[in-house]
């Protein structure tokens, strides 16, 4: 078992798991980003015949992680399927596995860019984004606040920050659908804390001439981006442009998933490119 790390965000304690999942003890909630189920068959449709074993591997790991954490609630942070039709390609045994999970735990599927519609036939409910106490959970990280912009890197391209539509659920419930809270892209981040996925963060460093690379959690004091969970998902270097301007660099850390444990590094240690 790996050393337990604690990530503090908005006064809440978050526990990163070696699998790439994130546990929120205060809410007994397990968060998992970017499952990318049926990625193999999705690529196969385009003639890229990667081994058709990804869904089996991902679900096996998911079952293990979920039963070990035994949370009250499961939140999938989007891109749970590699494409919108992924659900329909699930093999029967996998369908049963997922249904078992969704019937045993309260499950919320946040929509991602790969799977913009919530799944229909596997249980659980869909959402665009969610609030968990002070934390906002969404698939794509929102645009950076002006104060956190630094260096020469511009802001990433993308839609404006707001999640539109859905009305609030019961306010006594810690989880509610997000209203159209942020009509403009420039919003204050200080009183808003975010957990997102989408970017599949990864980082590397060189030690004694050897280059080590792995998926990672990456975050500063206002935002945490989770690694992708899926069997075939890799890690995009957090030094790459997609991450530009997302973090207040001085306060950013990466929790790198090694071969047997999670290791925490200040950004400067894993940042070999600016």
């Amino acid at each position: 078992m790996s050393k337990t790390h604690k990530i503090m965000l908005g006064g809440m304690e978050l526990i990163p798991d070696f699998s790439g999942a994130l546990y929120v003890p205060d809410y007994e909630t397990l968060i998992i980003a970017d499952l990318h189920l049926e990625q193999g068959s999705s690529l196969a449709r385009r003639g890229i015949h990667v081994p058709p074993y990804d869904t089996a591997i991902t679900l096996k790991l998911l079952e293990e992680v979920v039963s070990a954490a035994n949370p009250k609630r499961l939140i999938f942070l989007g891109d749970s399927f590699h494409d919108g039709e992924g659900e329909t390609r699930l093999d029967d045994t996998h369908l049963i596995t997922i249904r078992n999970i969704t019937s045993s735990y309260e499950t919320i599927w946040i929509c991602g860019n790969h799977d913009p519609e919530p799944p229909q036939a596997i249980g659980g409910q869909g959402a665009e984004s969610l609030s968990l106490g002070p934390l906002t959970l969404r698939h794509e990280p929102s645009l950076p606040s002006p104060s956190s912009q630094s260096g020469e890197g511009g802001s990433p391209q993308g839609e404006t920050g707001g999640d539109l539509g859905a009305e609030s659920l019961s306010s006594s419930h810690p989880i509610r659908r997000k209203g159209a809270a942020f009509p403009t892209s420039w919003r204050r981040r200080e009183d808003n804390f975010e957990i997102a996925g989408h970017l599949h963060p990864g980082c590397g460093l060189t030690q004694r001439g050897r280059r080590l690379y792995g998926k990672c959690f990456v975050g500063d004091n206002t935002r945490l981006i989770m690694p992708a969970f899926g069997a075939y998902t890799g890690g995009l270097a957090i030094t790459s442009k997609a991450f530009a301007g997302l973090f207040n660099e001085a306060e950013t850390h990466a929790w790198m998933i090694g071969q047997a444990a999670i290791h925490r590094f200040p950004l400067s240690r894993v940042q070999r490119r600016d």
Partner: peptide
């Protein structure tokens, strides 16, 4: 340069 969206499957994982 790859973007998150384009990340194809890493051969180590395959």
């Amino acid at each position: 340069q790859k973007t998150a969206r384009q990340v194809t499957v890493n051969t180590d994982l395959i």
